[in-house]
Write a protein that binds this DNA or RNA. Sequence first.
DNA 1: CCATAAAATTAGCCATGGCTATATCTTGCG
DNA 2: CGCAAGATATAGCCATGGCTAATTTTATGG
Lengths: 152, 152
Amino acid sequence: MTDPKASAIQVPPAEQAGRFARAREVQSRALLEDYVELIGDLITAHGEARVADIAERMGVAHPTATKTVARLKREGLATSRPYRGVFLTEEGARLAESVRSRHRTVVDLLVALGVPAEHAERDAEGIEHHVSQRTLRAFEAFLTKSETQPQS
Amino acid sequence: MTDPKASAIQVPPAEQAGRFARAREVQSRALLEDYVELIGDLITAHGEARVADIAERMGVAHPTATKTVARLKREGLATSRPYRGVFLTEEGARLAESVRSRHRTVVDLLVALGVPAEHAERDAEGIEHHVSQRTLRAFEAFLTKSETQPQS
DNA sequence: CCATAAAATTAGCCATGGCTATATCTTGCG
DNA sequence: CGCAAGATATAGCCATGGCTAATTTTATGG
């Protein structure tokens, strides 16, 4: 248990600023990650990802999806020709897979801790992006242990 | 363990859209929460929260802090008079306390799962905002259990 | 094979949350 | 007590990620 008295003020300003900077940076990648994961899922399910479907599932208007897909292309994660479906580059596909895997791990962890499935899904959607490699490994280790040794 | 084959595509579009909408909504509150928590910490430590200190610790330029404080005031979370320090309203203080408590719980959980302290702090900064009441309760329950019954 | 429906794009608006440069207020020191 | 330094505020810029409205392209059914 951390000391309740130990407010964040105890840490040097620069270090605290760095944490916030990291969180902002993660946030700017989160949208890309969500799109890439979704596009991957749509391709798996339907053979292609149409802008209308992306928009519907992201819960945004079509032009918003078009705009974000343009950003994906700029970043080398996706490809598309005008009025055609969207596809992932190799890099995009790799990212999609790692995002999907991390997402699953986060949901599994929450469920293992006793969070009801629907809550776990909703919370995971936001949490996952902030889970670092190191933390992800800890989650996986815990899940492995829980399997072997169900509960107390 | 969730079924690896069960991609998000299995869930109805509207439900998936709702999850993303929730994550976006959380995101828009996250900044306010961070500021309110920091202002609370600064007041506890120094008796007041100066814009320069807020900016330094948030890792942003002074005008950015000023602008966000204005938003805090608009939302009824803080008060301030020109060229004077920033203070929290009752509602702001309540929010600060609940954010601080949730932050501590998230860090404690990560540490309990074996994440090194500094990593836990960094990841928690982003994760905490997406942890719902329900999930928070599960974290607390797990931590209580771990205390009683240290490890396997 | 063409007309219409459906899908995608483009244009242009808004709020947020960064920034720099400039102006104004407070404060402390000589 | 007045002025320079430091703190705060204001103005105005940029990118992101939403939106609606209008346009263009593709696909389909009669």
